[in-house]
Design a protein around this nucleic acid. Structure first.
Lengths: 339, 339
DNA sequence: GTAAGCCACGTCAACGTTGACGTAACCGCG
DNA sequence: CGCGGTTACGTCAACGTTGACGTGGCTTAC
């Protein structure tokens, strides 16, 4: 009732084959098979060939649980993102996954729903899997909840957020530089009154953009900042409000592309045009930005590269060869039609 | 040089604590701690409390490798998607991840790049992790390459593709019904000549939509089908070609939303309007579809639900309680502005 | 009073692999 | 010819946990 017919994992034994199975078939000890499989040396060419033949024949796969148990290294890294519905994260995940595969690592994936409590549960459960390291984009509220895990010796790479800890490395995009180039671009094209549409100031990666925005404004320009949820709807609502309250605003720098697209829609819905009445610059460079009309001028973050760098750093952290606690990657202004 | 200061995983021993550590501190045997942690029964209330206190104090986390080694169950399921850049997959992944978490399972994530060879490598490497099951959206070329893994006893849930195998269950959306309702919708709104923009017929999930399209056309309407890569650019190019060759086409049913958005752009670029000159219906209901102008009429696939269903099926498959080899989930026509 | 039964533990082996160490055979060299 | 060194293995224990089984003490029933 519980089990149907037994599965035929292995041609001979009816379960996944082990070093013992291979060894028995070849006529050597399991230790020798292990040596061949891991290419440790200390075996003859003839033995090597026989072993690899039988490995193939029996579809032997090293059991990572047994390996992890003895070596303390699981060959996995965990990737924790708040969500995947924001297009920022799938591309980051792709970068992580590809780089991990290139290193022979497998990725454990988890979501925090951007909720610190869920994040805590998820990390606690991941600890049981003894990942060699974690790449995480922290949930709302910042990186403080990660500290206990770091203290316990879990190496973490924190994306786009700075945290000083012996077991942490931050991999960040140069958000400030991006903000500066966005503002310069708006000023260069002749905007007289800029505004920034941004998240609530709960995260330090918000602060960075906001402060760069404020610092780059000409001294005589009034700083206008509107805050909203970082969603399409949030961008739409806040911008609808803004165009009514401040019709003089003719340049809008947005926290990210999702908000920027909402902003463009709200501006158009108010009967004004982009970029002629209001120029809009986003941040991230998500696919959708290139597709909407007018196509979105934005600051590109190379998420694939961020993911790859994060994996490299987490591996370094795990084997103790890590140097430095922070990596900053460049961003690019992509000029399209919205500004 | 290799290791910096040792990490302080555990307040006492300097490494992650084990059943032994907890047991020693409480003054019972590891077996009793195990009983409490797994809530097996066979211990007194006083013991339970002491054990749980110390578990908390030492941050004990059951080592899943040791568990997996002895029980044969790893508490993980693997999720394999071709890519994440197509917005279809992140939402599927979200559904899988959430359902897995609800079941106490951890997700191993891998990408096949839609390449059967990569898929094979990835699955081979995953086999070493002894996942309890796999949820996979097969790479281009269909599900045939999965058979050896299934034969070896790896339970798999195959999304949107049918494969008959003792260790496989298919979880599919009702693509045919979706295609029928899309075509009916186009006919109802008065289209005189329909066309379908689709993938090359390599996958059986392509066939299903195409055949439903052809079967639903009125007998006197000429069947027009154009094939292209299922990308934005593919949709754009094929449609640019189509509007020129067949200016009589006034209704276009697309394989998916990404292609449909490309099609809308091509139609507009040709100086014609959507939906008045050509009505367009997509498939999937990706976020972007609601944002472009005109917003996209489409057939919605509830990917979150597909993912959740897939997890349920893979769990059933893994514990041998699976019944039936196929689940079909409904789809919905979402009427917006493009048709 | 004693057999039967249960409760709350403990003991032991096993899961599959690898680190540490042992060893037999052979080689070259003085 | 004997000695040191190398090559190609084998042996054994350990990683952390759980399944199977054992046990002493207490309760209950006749």
């Amino acid at each position: 009732m519980q089990r149907t017919e037994p599965s035929i994992d292995d041609p001979l034994t009816g379960r996944p084959s082990t070093l013992h199975d291979v060894a028995a078939r070849v006529g050597v000890s399991p230790r020798t098979v292990s040596r061949v499989v891991r290419d440790e040396g200390g075996f003859s060419e003839a033995t090597r060939q026989r072993v690899l033949e039988v490995v193939e024949e029996l579809n032997y796969r090293p059991n990572v649980h047994a390996r992890g148990l003895i070596s303390g290294r699981s060959g996995t890294i965990a990737f924790v993102a708040p969500v995947l519905s924001d297009p920022f994260f799938p591309e980051l995940a792709e970068g992580v996954q590809r780089a991990a595969r290139a290193q022979g690592l497998t990725v454990l994936f988890a979501m925090s729903d951007s909720d610190p409590e869920v994040q805590d549960e998820v990390l606690t459960s991941l600890e049981g899997h003894r990942p060699d390291g974690v790449v995480i984009f922290p949930a709302a509220g910042g990186p403080a909840p990660l500290v206990p895990f770091l203290d316990r010796g879990l190496p973490m790479v924190i994306v786009d957020t700075v945290l000083h800890h012996r077991n942490a490395v931050s991999v960040c995009s140069d958000l400030a530089a991006g903000a500066v180039s966005a503002v310069r671009h708006l000023l260069d094209r002749g905007c007289r009154q800029l505004a920034m549409l941004t998240d609530f100031p709960t995260r330090n990666l918000e602060q960075e953009r906001r402060q760069a925005f404020l610092a780059t404004l000409p001294p005589d320009m009034e700083p206008v900042v509107v805050e909203s949820e970082i969603t399409l709807q949030g961008g739409r609502d806040a911008t609808a409000d803004l165009v009514e309250r401040r019709p003089d605003v003719d340049g809008l720098f947005c926290f990210n592309d999702v908000m920027a697209i909402g902003a463009v829609q709200a501006i158009q819905a108010a009967g004004r045009t982009v970029p002629d009445d209001v120029a809009v610059v986003g941040f991230d460079d998500i696919q959708m930005g290139a597709v909407i009309s007018p196509s979105l001028t934005t600051v590109r973050i190379d998420r694939e590269r961020v993911g790859a760098e994060a994996v490299q750093q987490v591996v370094a952290l795990a084997d103790g060869s890590s140097t430095g606690e922070m990596v900053v990657l460049p961003v690019d202004l992509i000029e399209r039609d919205s500004a």
